[in-house]
């Protein structure tokens, strides 16, 4: 014989759990937006109370900062969205950098990725680059930027570049010294309507430029700019300057004006302490807004550190959207951690 069991309702945990929410509302009300309130959970109803705190925070626009044992710390309001604070052009994945090879005809003494004629070629390859371009376009990337070493050392560069410009506007970084013969013919086969060339020139006269990049390199770069213009390409000039020269830019801008570089295409950046550079500004994952960068070895945080293990993100280039999402996730986490540290260590 089966004896039917009398259904017995368990004592409801709801009222005591709700008390935590009342404590929380009162605590949050005592601190300004951005401040923290802590509440203690009842050990007997810890899970129910924590679930309720989570639900209340989600519905009320507040944010759990930490749960340690029976103590929950909640921020009044949500922490600022680090992505919303960025210029749209800085949002990770708004553009994607690709290192096409790494070997170079020059051995600049500040090269951030140690490129040189002796550097081993690490080519991204036509197949991968085509997939990168295709997935980048699908992922909402607005621009591709190709850099070397010196990309014009690649015999299939025209096909590589065209696979990118078929998908997205593209910028190709070059020292501008190799525009002759077969390489000039490759340049001529590129899409002028979708491709911008970015040539490195570091000074208005040969001295400083050649001291970093080799004797005669300035004159060849300037001549390369003339050739590119003659071929109908838009040309940007990017200069890399030590911090102590960043205040003497007027003569340089005037020079670039004379060779037909529009002001919006005159890019001057500070020397980074990376690669073979023995000085320069320090760039870390914490201090750099990421720019998704792909090399033959995988995905890096930023093009300026594409051979530094500390800024290696993942070996998996594909799906590219996942790589972009991972960099975005890490950026948000870094910014939130930095904001949190600033809150805990006020200066005054």
């Amino acid at each position: 014989m089966v004896i039917p069991r009398t259904p017995v309702s368990p004592p409801s945990a709801a009222p005591s759990a709700m008390g935590v929410v009342l404590d929380l509302i009162e605590g949050i009300g005592r601190v300004p937006t951005g401040g923290m309130a802590t509440v203690a959970l009842d050990a007997a109803n810890r899970i129910a109370a924590l679930d309720l705190v989570v639900a209340w925070c989600a519905s009320s626009g507040n944010e759990i900062v930490s749960v340690e044992g029976l103590t929950v710390t909640v921020r009044h309001g949500r922490s600022p969205d680090p992505l919303a604070q960025l210029d749209p052009a800085q949002v990770p994945g708004s553009r994607v950098w690709v290192y096409t090879n790494f070997d170079c005809n020059l051995a600049c003494d500040y090269c951030c990725v140690r490129s040189s004629p002796k550097a081993e070629r690490r080519a991204i390859g036509a197949e991968r680059l085509q997939q990168i371009a295709s997935e980048a376009a699908a992922a909402g990337v607005g621009e591709l930027i190709l850099t070397g070493g010196e990309p014009f050392l690649l015999n299939d560069l025209d096909a590589l570049v065209n696979s990118c410009t078929d998908e997205l506007p593209t910028t190709l970084l070059t020292n501008g010294m190799l525009f002759r013969g077969a390489r000039l013919e490759r340049l001529r086969r590129m899409d002028r309507s979708r491709l911008t060339l970015q040539v490195s020139v570091d000074s208005a006269t040969p001295g400083i430029h050649d001291s970093h990049r080799g004797t005669g390199s300035w004159a060849k770069a300037v001549d390369g700019i003339r050739i590119a213009h003659d071929e109908g390409f838009r040309v940007k000039v990017a200069a890399t300057l030590p911090a102590d020269q960043m205040h003497e830019l007027d003569p340089f801008h005037s020079f670039l004006d004379t060779i037909g570089i529009s002001r919006e295409d005159q890019v001057i950046r500070a020397l980074a302490h990376r690669g073979v550079a023995d000085s320069g500004i320090e760039l870390t994952v914490d201090s750099l807004i990421p720019e998704v960068t792909i090399t033959a070895d995988g995905v890096y945080w930023h093009p300026v550190a594409a051979d530094h293990d500390a800024q290696f993100v993942t070996r998996d280039i594909f799906p590219l959207a996942d790589a972009i999402a991972e960099i975005t996730r890490r950026f948000v986490a870094h910014r939130r951690a930095a904001d949190s540290a600033a809150e805990w260590f006020p200066c005054a």
Partner: peptide, 16 residues
Amino acid sequence: NTWQAIGRGELLPGAF
């Protein structure tokens, strides 16, 4: 406003 702050009874139906 307080009723809304505690979730209008929807957050934890067994409470209020």
